[in-house]
Design a protein around this nucleic acid. Sequence first.
DNA 1: CTATCTGCAAACCGTTTGCAGCGTT
DNA 2: AACGCTGCAAACGGTTTGCAGATAG
Lengths: 145, 145
Amino acid sequence: MESQKSLADKWIKMLQASGYRQTEARNTIVDVILESQRALEPLEIFEIGRKRQSGLGLVTVYRTLERLEALGLVQRVHQPGGCNMYLRAPVGHEHLLICTSCGKAEFFNGDDLAPLMDYVAKQSGYCITEHWFQLFGQCADCQKK
Amino acid sequence: MESQKSLADKWIKMLQASGYRQTEARNTIVDVILESQRALEPLEIFEIGRKRQSGLGLVTVYRTLERLEALGLVQRVHQPGGCNMYLRAPVGHEHLLICTSCGKAEFFNGDDLAPLMDYVAKQSGYCITEHWFQLFGQCADCQKK
DNA sequence: CTATCTGCAAACCGTTTGCAGCGTT
DNA sequence: AACGCTGCAAACGGTTTGCAGATAG
C-alpha cells in the first residue's frame, strides 16, 4: 500500500503535468481526501481543510474536485443517502464496499464479474461499456458495537 | 410480462392499502412511469403528464414519487449524468442495463453475484446487506445506427 | 363531513458563475 | 510579466415547504 504522502505527491505532479499549478489550497484538499477513510462531501472537505488553512474557500473545493475527477484521481460515490460524496478513484477492477454505520470505504477486486457481463451482453445484444458494482454492509468494527 | 394497465392497477391498490387515496394526478403519474421505456426525471414526468391532465403540478409529481419509492414500487436510478431519474423498481434479483445512447432500461437477472458477495464478506469481515450492480452500454437498435 | 390531496408561490440549499485581486511559474 | 488561481458574493436550478381551497372516501 502506497503511503498517503507519496500518493499526494503523485496527484500534485499529475495536476502539474496537465498544466495546472501547485497551490496551497490544492495541497490541503488533496491531503484531506487522501487521509480520509470515507467518502466526503464538498462541504466536509471544506470544513476539515479550513482548520488547516483558514483562508480556504468552498468554491475552490468544488473546482479542485472537478479537476481531480477529470484526471480520474477522484470518484463521485453514489449512496442511498445521496450522490455528492467524493473518494479516491479505484485502480484497475476495484469496487467499493461501504459501511452503512461508519461510512468507511474499502476496495475489493471484482474480476469475477467478467463472465456474468459477457453472458448479459450475449443475451441482451447490448455492447456493454461500463459497469457499476458496489456493496453496502456493516464493517467488522461496527458489528462489535 | 404483466401488462402496464394491470401493473398500474396494482400500484394504485397498494397506495390505497397504505391509506393513500386514488386521485387523477396519481393515476396520470403512475401511467407515465409505467409506459416509459427509460428512467424519467421529475420534470419529464410532469411535462408528459401535463399533456394528459392540464392541471397537474410538479410538486405533486415529487410527492407521488416519494410515496411510490417508499412503497418500493419505484427506484431512483443512478447514472453518470445524474441521479434524479426514476423507474419502476426491480423485482427479485433483477439489475439494470441501460443504453447510453437512447436511455432504454432493461432488467437482467443477477443471481450469479451471490458467490462473489459471499467471498467478499468472508475476506472483509463485513456483514453485507445491500448491493448495487448496474451495466451501461449501447443497445442493439442503437448499434445499428 | 373529515382528512387527505392539490397547485401555487415562496423558501431552501447545494452548486456554479462573475469578478477583481493574488500567487505560481 | 502573464496567466492561472482564489475567495467572496451573487446567481442559479432542482427540491421542499406553507398554505388555502378542492376532492376522495
